[in-house]
């Protein structure tokens, strides 16, 4: 409950990052969306024991964070803070899969640990990629890209409305909860008896707000069709960005670079 403010702050902060100005920020959102999806598909397409093969993929978030001037520490913290389900399910791997896959002298590492590590790596990579997409592009621009890619109009439009009013409603919810908690002793969660009228009232107010918004729209000539101007342009940069990353991902997917590199190094050391 007490994290309502923090949550909307987080959204707002990512959106502020998206207002930044860098080569990457200026790219057409579509290019970034495609690259992100390519990246995620490439990462999750490895088999479950893939570990070293995943490491080269860190080049993507690292390059984007550096070039985009994003706060790496903040993003990392965010990624590490939210991983309950993946860890919860993944943690069973070491317990269930005890085949020794790697042997260092007398220490054997079970396949379960490797696949668990692999899950965590995948998690960090995919989640970071999604966060980077938003921080470089901004949610509204992502929606614009979705529209251009042929997502149904009503869906994208209500998505934009939704995003717009997240801030207003989380604010309102926070104020109501705060007012409630001043009058109760449990600060962690509101009581069930308070929760219902609180949420119900918020819902009623929301419905009234929807009415007022609709009215405001009508006042400005709304006829059931929402029009929006989005100037998007695919230039050379976009093509290079998207194709470049895509080829790199395919290459990294097909050839185990770290293994080759490692073999080279260990060979030399021997």
């Amino acid at each position: 409950m007490n994290n309502i403010g923090a949550n909307s702050f987080n959204i707002g902060y990512l959106d502020t990052l998206a207002c930044g100005d860098s080569v990457l920020h200026r790219l057409d959102p579509r290019a970034k969306l495609i690259a992100t999806l390519m990246f995620i598909v490439a990462v999750v397409s490895f088999d479950k024991y893939a570990l070293s093969q995943l490491t080269p993929f860190f080049i993507y978030p690292i390059v984007l964070i550096s070039l985009g001037g994003l706060p790496a520490g903040y993003l990392l913290k965010k990624v590490l803070l939210v991983s309950p389900f993946a860890i919860l399910v993944g943690i069973f791997n070491p317990l269930l899969d005890k085949e020794i896959l790697i042997q260092f002298g007398s220490i054997g590492i079970a396949g379960g640990w490797i696949s668990f590590m692999s899950i965590l790596l995948r998690f960090v990579l995919t989640v970071t990629a999604a966060l980077i997409l938003v921080s470089l592009t901004g949610f509204n621009a992502v929606c614009g890209a979705l529209l251009k890619f042929g997502m149904p109009r009503p869906f994208v439009m209500q998505l934009l409305f939704f995003y717009r009013y997240i801030f207003v409603l989380t604010d309102e919810a926070e104020r109501m909860v705060r007012a409630g908690s001043f009058r109760s002793f449990n600060s962690r969660a509101v009581g069930f008896k308070t929760f219902i009228p609180l949420t119900g009232t918020l819902l009623l107010r929301t419905l009234e707000r929807a009415e007022r918004i609709y009215h405001a729209m009508c006042c400005r000539g709304f006829d059931g069709h929402i029009r929006i101007i989005r100037a998007m342009k695919i230039r050379h940069q976009e093509i290079i960005f998207t194709l470049g990353w895509t080829f790199l991902f395919i290459w990294l997917r097909c050839y185990n670079i770290p293994l080759t590199l490692g073999a080279l190094i260990t060979g030399v050391l021997k």
Partner: peptide, 15 residues
């Protein structure tokens, strides 16, 4: 109600 100030001001004229 629109995503950006520009979109909002443009809403009416576009309609």
């Amino acid at each position: 109600f629109m995503p950006t100030v520009f979109d909002d001001v443009a809403f009416g004229p576009l309609n």
